[in-house]
Design a binder for these strands. Structure first.
Length: 764
DNA sequence: TCCGATCTATTTTTT
DNA sequence: ATAGATCGGA
């Protein structure tokens, strides 16, 4: 065992060596936070702590996996595999699968995702005959979710006069009742939602002291990453879990707390001091990631927040390049400028695509950048966005898997029985639900006995329901005799999903089939993967990998957990939230406009605005060498053109760190110009820049363009479009404001244009 | 029961 | 703009 501590700076070393008792590490962006945590675990093991006695909670499963691998290579032994590492949700799900039977759940309970929860709430609102406009599903779910993450049960909710008054005031006095019904239906389905994983773990520890003791005893050392993003439930459970040994180490940065909207509580950091008065506090303030310019600019930004623990982040790195600010006329032009800039830097600096990232506030912004990158032939990849596992075709197929593992899972039942169509319609399903409610049984139980029950369902439909039940039962029989992949393949083939999708040969239809293939490949990978060490440390189930095991992993997987393929070289596009913990040489933070970033919903309270600013801080501190900011003066939002003001956040950075705003020439070698010369800040406020030669050309091209009156537009005409160049009109449909033309443009292919917006010049 | 046409809300972020 | 929901007719 070599002395690993020599790789650390003084502060990191102290934080790692202080292994007993409560420890809080306040770690600035890029200060080697994960490094400290990893070394701490390695150091614990090297000084004789059994890895089985260590629990490390991370923000994503990917972070856990990476940390585990680093620990293993640091200590030079695969013993490191035995550390329990994962997200709060996945670790607690494991605990509940082992001990949740005490609370009345089977070990195969289903985890409902947000989509399932919303469907369930929606059906309850309908059952209660409530106005769906007043009781918006996402609002109701949000209320329930915050209650649960503050450890409020449905009864607590109903009996709390303050909550009741608030709900009644807004005319939504029934939320408590919906909450109750929602929980009851989850129970009936042997299912938990995300918040239940925390809520029920707390319940288990509260009501079963011997179980709490078991885990307190097991986890002699508890480490928590990203502590600033824990919510009340997580905080409370942690405190219980660590109560016996008090060997708890939390690592966090209040300046990077960006999940308050989902219940994260920065006060947990302050509470730590009160709960453990004899704690040791360490500060990591040296940044190893970014240039001086970036570190200082980031400090400028965060200084505007009142609510923070003061600290001084500094770096020994070079000054680095100035921050570039790009101003675009439209959202489309913004994307073009960014793509051109990436292309330029890539060429002049000989950089890989993966050295670049584009960060935006909302997923909806990705579209323009995709188009612009495609035009520049720059490979890109969207990270996150619509998650793979929330695609319809994937959920449809997973519904069958879920149902086979837990037949009481009602959301899965409803999905599976509904698709592919098998002649069981809405009316029959409703009747099934009525019987289920009356007898307090799951839909599955009702379906199995439908032949013996009095129902108004007609004979042929009853036969179809029975066929469905027989099919599911036949899959169930294979659960333990077949491995995950064989069973998944069998089910996929038997339910004709592929056959159904093959009817649709559009690009979307083909991609759906590819997605299903990808899912089956993932299951195949899983089936052939090395078995994880089992939970209690004895590998009694060294045999087959079962579908149920795959499914219990899948429900907590997010796109952020996907392994990156090492050979891949892409420019990455992602939301700032998704970028937490990552770093890139070249970072583009786009859409810096008022009402977008900061988001319009965050302008009401200081707290919300400060969270938004922390989000900007996180974005800026992702960059190592060079940061580029951009905004557009106009943007399409919900279908129409909106004028935009530059974000207040831009002005919070000392202008000395910013290169003057410029519109890079539309075409031409912008990257050949030096961008690092200091700018006159006064001049930078003035709008037009000294036009470069190519910029003049572009302007002229714009000015010579005159849109024609298109009321007489006809098939066969040749037209010009500012962006797409010349093209031939293939067809004209609709009339008035809805009049559209299909035009084939050379080099851009066929486009549908709404004539109201598209400015076309008729050439002949 | 199924299918197409029309209407609608969506855009904050996610375990 | 667009996907999903809803409604009405076959």
């Amino acid at each position: 065992m070599s002395d690993i501590l020599t790789h650390l700076n003084q502060a990191q070393k102290q934080a790692v060596e202080c292994s007993e008792g409560p420890v809080m590490i306040i770690a600035g962006a890029g200060s080697g936070k994960t490094r400290a945590l990893t070394y701490r675990i390695a150091h614990l093991i090297n000084t004789g702590v059994d890895p089985f006695n260590i629990l490390a909670l991370t923000f994503t499963n990917k972070a856990a996996r990476e940390m585990k691998n680093r620990v293993i290579s640091l200590i030079g032994s695969s013993e490191g595999r035995n550390v329990w590492m994962g997200t709060f949700h996945s670790v607690f799900a494991k605990i509940l699968r082992i001990d949740g039977n005490n609370l009345g759940y089977s070990s195969n309970f289903t985890i409902y995702d947000t989509d399932d929860s919303k469907r369930l709430i929606k059906s309850i609102i309908t059952d209660f005959n409530l106005d769906p406009k007043l009781y918006a599903v996402s609002f109701v779910l949000h209320r329930i979710s915050s209650a649960k993450s503050n450890l409020f049960s449905a009864n607590d909710y109903i009996n709390d006069s303050e909550i009741r008054a608030a709900d009644q005031k807004s005319g939504k006095g029934m939320i408590g009742e919906i909450f109750q019904a929602y929980n009851a239906r989850l129970r009936r389905s042997d299912a938990m939602d995300f918040d239940d994983l925390l809520f029920n773990t707390n319940l288990l520890f509260r009501d079963y002291p011997e179980i709490l003791y078991k885990y307190q005893h097991k986890f002699r050392y508890v480490l928590v990453d990203e502590y600033q993003d824990t919510n009340h439930a997580q905080y409370f459970i942690l405190k219980k879990l660590a109560a016996l040994h008090e060997n708890i180490c939390v690592v966090g940065d209040d300046a990077q707390s960006i999940y308050a909207f989902r219940g994260a509580n920065i006060r947990n950091i302050l509470n730590f001091k009160n709960d453990y008065p004899d704690h040791k506090l360490f500060r990591l303030e040296q940044n190893y990631r970014s240039s001086k310019t970036i570190v200082k600019a980031a400090n400028n930004i965060i200084a505007n927040n009142k609510d923070q623990i003061r600290k001084t982040i500094w770096t020994d790195n070079d000054d680095g390049e100035l921050i570039t600010l790009l101003r675009a006329k439209s959202d489309q032009e913004e994307a073009t400028l960014v793509a051109n800039s990436i292309f330029g830097v890539k060429m002049s600096q000989q950089r890989k695509n993966s050295d670049f990232v584009i960060l935006y506030r909302t997923n909806a912004q990705s579209r323009n950048f995709e188009e612009a990158l495609r035009k520049q032939n720059i490979p890109y990849k969207i990270y996150g966005g619509l998650s793979f596992y929330s695609r319809k075709e994937i959920k449809d197929l997973l519904a069958y898997f879920r149902l086979v593992i837990n037949p009481h899972d009602e959301e899965a039942f409803l999905r599976a029985i509904n698709y592919p169509a098998r002649g069981i319609g809405k009316t029959s399903i409703e009747r099934l639900q009525v019987i289920a409610d009356q007898n307090e049984k799951s839909l599955w139980d009702v379906a199995c006995q439908i032949n013996n029950l009095n129902s108004e369902i007609n004979r042929p439909t009853i036969a179809r329901i029975m066929d469905f039940a027989i099919m599911i039962r036949s899959f169930k029989a294979m659960l333990h005799t077949h491995n995950a992949f064989d069973l998944a393949k069998h089910i996929t083939a038997s339910v004709n999903i592929i056959k159904e999708l093959k009817e649709d040969d559009s690009p979307e239809g083909i991609s759906r089939i590819e997605n299903i293939e990808e899912l089956l490949n993932a299951i195949k990978d899983f089936t052939t993967r090395e078995p994880e060490p089992s939970l209690d440390g004895n590998d009694e189930q060294a045999g087959m990998k079962l579908l149920s095991e795959f499914m219990s992993e899948v429900s907590l997987i997010t796109d952020a957990d996907k392994e990156d393929k090492n050979d891949a070289d892409y420019v990455l596009l992602m939301t700032i939230h998704a970028a937490k913990g990552l770093e890139f040489p070249y970072v583009y933070v786009v859409g810096l406009e008022e009402n977008l970033f900061p988001s319009i919903q965050s302008l009401n309270t200081r707290e919300d605005l400060e969270e938004e600013r922390r989000l900007f801080y996180v974005a800026v501190t992702r960059s190592e060498l060079k940061l580029t900011l951009s905004y557009a003066e106009s943007r399409f939002r919900w279908g129409n053109l909106t004028m935009c003001e530059p974000s207040r956040f831009i002005d919070e950075i000392d202008p000395h760190f910013i290169d003057k705003p410029r519109r890079a020439p539309f075409s031409g070698p912008s990257f050949l110009q030096s961008s690092s010369e200091m700018s006159d800040t006064k001049a930078s406020k003035m709008k037009p820049l000294h036009p470069t030669a190519s910029q003049t050309d572009a302007t002229n091209a714009n000015e010579s363009f005159e849109a024609s009156d298109t009321t007489a537009l006809q098939t066969g005409m040749t037209v010009a479009h500012q962006k797409f160049g010349t093209g031939k009109v293939i067809s004209v449909e609709g009339k008035g404001a809805d009049k559209k033309a299909t035009v084939f443009f050379n080099g851009f292919g066929q486009k549908q244009l709404l004539l109201k917006f598209a400015r076309l010049q008729i050439l002949e």
